[in-house]
Amino acid sequence: MPSTAPDVLLTDAGLVRPASVAAGIAPGPAVASRPRRRKTDLWPYLYVLPVLAVFGVFLLVPLVQGIWYSFTSWDGIGPAPWAGLSNYISIWTNPVMREGLANTGVLVLFYAGAPIVAGLFTAALIGRRGMRGMGFYRTVLFLPQVLSSVVVIVIWRLLLAPAGPVNQSLGAMGLGFLRADWLGSFSITLDVLGLIGSWVAFGFCMLLFLAGIQAIPTELYDAAKVDGASPVREFFAVTLPGLRGQMAVAMTLSVIGAFQAFDIIWLVTQGGPGTSSVTPAINLYNDAFVSQNVGAAAAMGVVMLGASLVVTLVIVRLVEGRRNA
């Protein structure tokens, strides 16, 4: 951890400290007027106030309103009749909502599972001591992360078009039977969209794990080498245990990303064909802005917030718990 650097600087500070102590007792209006520890110092609150104001007005207020709307059957225009828990119940009973939840399960595999495994694997290779030119791979693999989701889906719509390069190359390789309507099929389109999500997300996981690997003390690798550990053993004995913290961050962020999945799927299929690729966020959008079920949309928003917080807590607890054991 980076704690050593500030400590060194603090001990160096011995040279400077006396001066500042002297300044504290030195007479003179400029110093004397400065509030000291006794009185409550109000200045820090002024530094923080603007952030809290923006945060409060544009985030907390809508958040609380959303919770309120979720218990009503408001249509966005008239009065908001109290609806109790009915919006929450219909998330579980409405078939389209259920389909959205089930699809989320699939997307967790593609948005979180696959990128974490691939990210771990590539980071372990890039992070090996004694390899050259790794900066190039790092930069390239992170590239999809900086592309807008619209650009990403244009790329894949072109590649996966019925007469596009993917189907053409399959035909040319004599694998014509594998050709498919990748983005218009009831059975495989959700998985294809999920894979596009993996393509985007894995660079992020890679970079995160790379950061963790660089923080693992070199001595551990030296010790593994002395013990004659193979690269695979070294990965499981040294690298993987050293990445616990990054694993928690990667899992939290990418699972939440899967819960929120919207852009890629909305832009390609809008949840179709039929409702085969709907997600909770797409249901929320349709409820709120197409069918004017504002209450139902708000309830979905609250559930998504709750799910995100629960996932964060559970993952952090799991990782911390294992660390103590």
Partner: peptide, 8 residues
């Protein structure tokens, strides 16, 4: 998440 606040 954006989705939790976008409607209100």
């Amino acid at each position: 998440p954006v989705t939790a606040v976008i409607v209100p």
